[in-house]
Amino acid sequence: MLRLLITATVAGALAGSLCGCTGVLCDRLGLRTVAFAVAHGALAGAALSFLVGVNSIVLGMIFALFTALILGPLADTFDIPIDMVSMTLFSLYNALTFIFLILSPGIVLAAEKVSQVLWGSVLAVTLDYLIILSTIAVLYALFLVILWHRIAPILFDRRLAEAEGINVRAYTYVLIALTGLVVVFTLRITGGFLVFSLIYIPASSALQLSENMKRIVALSAVLGLISAVSGVYFSFFADLPVGSSIVICAAVILLVASVAGYFRRRSLMKIVS
C-alpha cells in the first residue's frame, strides 16, 4: 500500500509539473485546443483496441502521438487556424470512439481498461511508466532551459520572432509534439476527460500570481505538482477517483490564487497611482 502511494505521488508530481508547464506554453502560443485533440485521439485509439483486440494503452498512445505530429503541418498546409483543426479532430475522435465501442464485442463500457483511459487510475502506474515520465520531464526541462532565449520571443510575438529569423514553425511543432507526449502519459493518472484540467488550471493560477514569464512557467509547474500530489493523497484518504480528486485540488488552488492575484493587482495599482 505504501509503495503504491509513493509511486502514485512521484507520478503525480512529474505529471503535474509537466502539465503545468505545458498549459502556460499552449496558452501563449494559442494552442489551447491541441490537448483536447491529442487526449481524444488516445481515447479513440483505446476504443479501437477493444474492437481489434490489441493493447489499449499502446494503440491509444499511437493515436495521440500521431495527432500531435500532424496537427501543426495540417494547419499550415491548408492554412486553417490550428484551433479549428484541433476541434475538428476532437469531434472526429469522439465519433470514432463511440463507433468503436458500439462495435466492440461484449459490454466493454464497464471494462476496467476503458475506465482507466476515461478516468485514469493510480493502479496503472508502473516503474516503466515512471521511467518514461521522468525521461520526458528531463527532456522538457532541457528543451526549455537551453532554448529559452529562442522560445521567449515566440511567446512574446510569433510573427516578429519569425521576422527576426527564428524558426518559429520548427519550435512550434516541437512544442506541439511535447504537449502530445505529456498528455499521453498523464492520461494514465487523470484520464482523458480530466487531463485538460491539470494542464489549464495550474496555468490559470500561475497567471494570477506573476507578470514574469519565467516565473509563470515555474509557478505553473509547481502548482501542477501540488495539485497532482495533493489530489493523489485526497483520493487515497477519501476513497475517491484520482483524476477527480486532482481537479478538485487544482480548483481550490486556483480559488486561492485568484484571491491573492486580486490583492496583488490592487497593491500594484496603489504603487502606480
Binding site: L147, W148, H149, R150, A152, P153, F156, L207, M213
Partner: peptide
C-alpha cells in the same frame, strides 16, 4: 496589461535570434 515580459527582456529578444542558442 499583464504581458509577462519586462522591458529589458523585450529589447534583449532582438538579440536572441542572432546569438548561438539565443544566449546573451
Amino acid at each position: 496589461a499583464g504581458e509577462p515580459f519586462s522591458v529589458k527582456e523585450v529589447v534583449a529578444m532582438g538579440l536572441s535570434s542572432i546569438r548561438p542558442l539565443g544566449k546573451l
